[in-house]
């Protein structure tokens, strides 16, 4: 019982937040020193983080393991503190103002959840394609590049481009789409972007097929954060007046 009380007190404490935010900063500083000089980190985008971590030596990844541990403690700490705050302040006036930091906290937790899902199941691969190329993107479907249109300005810069694609299943077209700048083709959780072009000898595109299972959660977290921030700023300004 005493241990249970101690654990509860530990996770409800603001000191825990401050200490672990401090540890988090130290680990990020360490990572900022280690990461730029090491070639191994180049491969970090192509496989899920957890899979990558198990294949790399601990001398390179210790700070990432520490980050995961620290963020786990901060997650529980945030949950405990937010729940306590909401329960304590549920009957006070200006409830919205008091609740807005907790909305930001929940948004932050959603973003952590997003990173967890991406660390478990994200993937990225690159495929070079010309007009007419067929790419197998999943077991039962393929994607055919129908057209590559690139607009080059008189000064020689690519000013606009679009790639039209068709999705096929058993040889039948079931979806048509166009990939443009900032407009990927999204199909069954896969995101197809154009990474690079080559105009000569034939128009060729380098397609990036990626899976980001955390994206929806990150967006949810972002929306919650934005809602919390907007309420906080509006109400703080009103209160100041």
């Amino acid at each position: 019982m005493i241990v249970f009380k101690y654990v509860i007190r530990f996770f409800l404490s603001l000191n825990t937040t401050l200490w672990f935010l401090g540890f988090l900063l130290i680990m990020l500083f360490a990572g900022a020193l280690i990461m730029p000089g090491k070639q191994a980190f180049q491969g970090l985008h192509t496989v899920p983080l957890f899979k990558w971590l198990t294949t790399q030596p601990l001398t390179l990844t210790w700070w990432l393991w520490c980050l995961i541990g620290i963020l786990s403690v901060l997650t529980v700490n945030t949950l405990f503190c937010s729940i306590e705050s909401i329960l304590k302040k549920r009957k006070v006036t200006q409830w919205l103002l008091l609740i807005s930091p907790q909305v930001i906290h929940i948004g932050f937790l959603f973003m952590l959840l997003a990173h967890l899902f991406s660390a478990l199941g994200s993937s990225q691969r690159f495929v070079a394609a010309r007009e007419g190329s067929v790419l197998h993107i999943s077991e039962d479907s393929a994607m055919q590049v129908k057209g590559i249109n690139i607009l080059v300005s008189p000064r020689g810069y690519i000013s606009e481009w679009e790639v039209s694609v068709e999705y096929l299943s058993n040889g039948e077209v079931f979806k048509k789409d166009t990939i443009k700048p900032n407009q990927p083709s999204i199909h069954r959780g896969l995101n197809v972007n154009v990474k690079d072009f080559r105009l000569f000898p034939k128009k060729t595109v380098l397609l990036q097929v990626s899976k980001e299972p955390g994206a929806v959660w990150a967006l949810t977290g972002g929306i919650l954060c934005m809602a919390g921030i907007t309420i906080l700023i509006i109400l703080k300004i009103k209160k100041e007046r």
Partner: peptide, 22 residues
Amino acid sequence: FLAWGTYWIWTPKELWTSILWI
């Protein structure tokens, strides 16, 4: 996410942005 298919890229800028935010 819209431009490169991912909302997070492991580069020094992203890492330092995290440091700043934390």
